[in-house]
Design a protein around this nucleic acid. Structure first.
Lengths: 185, 185
DNA sequence: TCCGATGGTATTGAGTCGATACCATATTGG
DNA sequence: CCAATATGGTATCGACTCAATACCATCGGA
């Protein structure tokens, strides 16, 4: 049977496969990662600093990747009202159009072909690994807004929720996005 | 609950964490991958071509990584007797001494902390993903020699096995190494 | 109003990576 | 036996990645 060492080798191999998929359509792995992040993150997290924390890189490195994406017309920067230092990032139409061409689709298909129970336990296992590896390097979870302990769901169905930490109202759609500040409820 | 999309995000994140671990001790992720491969592969696979197939990169790229490792004194190249084009790769003592410092140890610890049943199903899930992602890009499995259909176990306990494909005798220890030619029994 | 903390950018140097071109050594077919 | 071709590797180029360092502007508090 498979022992622990073999599973670790398979995880390394999977990581390499995921990285290799990142060369689809003339882009680079780091560029795809940035694109995917910007498609998933809420407005409080969609900044160079947010992406830096998500990827666990240095801010200089991330700044360069973002410049290359901006040059390519995939990402837009706008000044952040309320903090003159900070920058708001948004995908352009062109950037958004690229998302479905993501090479991760291959891996996603392989995953969806697995039996339901295996998908579930694979999810549990990967979640546990990510959580503890993240803890070891004091990284942030970037979980989903609605699962956060600062999230106050709207009780009256107006479609308006609230973040108790940032003291900001939240649209319905935003509750499903990932957030820099998220802490499990 | 976690849906499929969230699990895919976690897999991307795990891949990034694994890559980031690859900067331990002033080395680069690709260099660690090469080192680990050379520690695990048998003599038939321990060549630039073998590493190229394992990583799914181009041979030029791998050639450069190997040159940097040779410059650093971690890898030795010797001519392959029997084929003047081919090169045999071996870890030096210095290269072997580096192995225990691998940053993957962090992930390995996290893995070993998981309950046994979760470890098993995580292994099954990752194995299934790797197998089908590999098939999609017609990559080789690089499984363990003893699990290969060309492997003939020694029946009389002399410690000598045999590869029916390469028509070569195999030491006991070699049966546990990974091989370019391996096909599941 | 300083002063340190925070969010970003600029620059440098080593490494990664695909693409292309190239070389030497097999292997195959006539 | 000897071309033609295939195979295993290396060399070079250009764009990108990444950490490290230095730097700048804005923010926040004492």
């Amino acid at each position: 049977m498979r022992n622990d060492g073999e599973t670790i080798e398979l995880i390394e191999r999977l990581a390499r496969l995921v990285t290799n998929e990142g060369h689809a359509h003339g882009m680079k792995p780091a560029q795809w990662e940035a694109l995917r992040f910007l498609a998933r993150a809420n407005r409080f997290s969609r900044t160079p600093g947010g992406l830096t924390a998500y990827l666990g890189l240095t801010k200089g490195t991330v700044s360069q990747t973002l410049m290359s994406l901006e040059r390519a017309g995939l990402v837009e920067k706008t000044a952040n009202p309320g903090d003159g230092r900070s920058v708001r990032l948004d995908l352009t139409e062109k950037g958004r159009a690229l998302l479905p061409l993501d090479g991760m689709a291959t891996i996603k298909q392989a995953f969806e072909a697995l039996p339901l129970s295996l998908r579930a336990s694979l999810g549990d296992g990967v979640a546990a690994l990510v959580t503890s590896a993240l803890a070891a390097r004091s990284g942030r979870a970037f979980g989903i807004c609605r699962d956060c302990r600062h999230f106050a769901a709207d009780a009256r169905g107006s479609g308006q929720h609230y973040c108790r930490l940032l003291k900001q109202p939240l649209e319905d759609a935003e509750a499903e996005q990932i957030c820099q500040e998220q802490e499990a409820a």
